[in-house]
Design a protein around this nucleic acid. Structure first.
Lengths: 112, 112
DNA sequence: CCGGATCCATTTAGATACTG
DNA sequence: CAGTATCTAAATGGATCCGG
């Protein structure tokens, strides 16, 4: 059976930190430690993983400069930038959801 | 720190079978075994879990009829139905992605 | 500065059997 | 018919240390 494109889309952005990374990268090219400073809660290993997955998926480009000290830049590919309108849709839906869920007293806490 | 609404949106639909369940439920109310027949690869336990999570999140309504044999219906709430336009956006983006990734020879296989 | 190598904790899903 | 109960497997994320 052929996998639904919606599912494919979800898989591309469902890493724990990917949407935040995408948000920062939509603002322009960033160096590795720049991203680390923007997201201090993420460990180095996990951040590398998430970025490499997005690279493999064709959303992110990685440029290594042969310098001492090393310098590595991450930027969105055209495909990555093409996510923006969809992410905005998701943002607006999410905002509406939060309002609706609060109004309905829906408890979204994961620890009952 | 406040969690990004995009991230919230992703969390609501990122279960392995949730988008498929949503697709079926967008077509109308379904009984439990009806869903099972539509998705034979999912085990009972997992299907129950995913449906219950979506119920807790306010996307799905569950109606139990006090009959023998039991009858349980699942249907989308208004909030759940409000996902449709966003899911269509994601569908269209996903389709474009697949075409672009294939054209670029991007290997998305998870087992190198 | 960037990240690889290890080891561990947690979460998620699947297999299988049983029940009101 | 529509679950629950157990057990196990796999995936994901995190902590920590090491290296060019």
């Amino acid at each position: 059976m052929q996998k639904c494109p919606v599912e494919i889309t979800v898989e591309l952005i469902e890493g724990k930190w990917k949407t935040e990374l995408l948000r920062h990268l939509l603002g322009g090219t960033k160096r590795f430690n720049e991203l680390r400073r923007l997201m201090p809660e993420v460990t180095q290993r996990v951040m590398t993983n998430q970025l490499r997955e997005m690279e493999r998926d064709g959303l992110v480009e990685r440029t290594v400069y042969a310098e001492i000290p090393p310098k590595v830049e991450y930027r969105l590919t055209e495909l990555g930038r093409s996510l923006e309108p969809m992410l905005l849709e998701m943002l607006r839906w999410g905002e509406a959801y939060v309002r609706a869920a609060e109004a309905a007293g829906c408890d979204r806490s994961r620890n009952p």
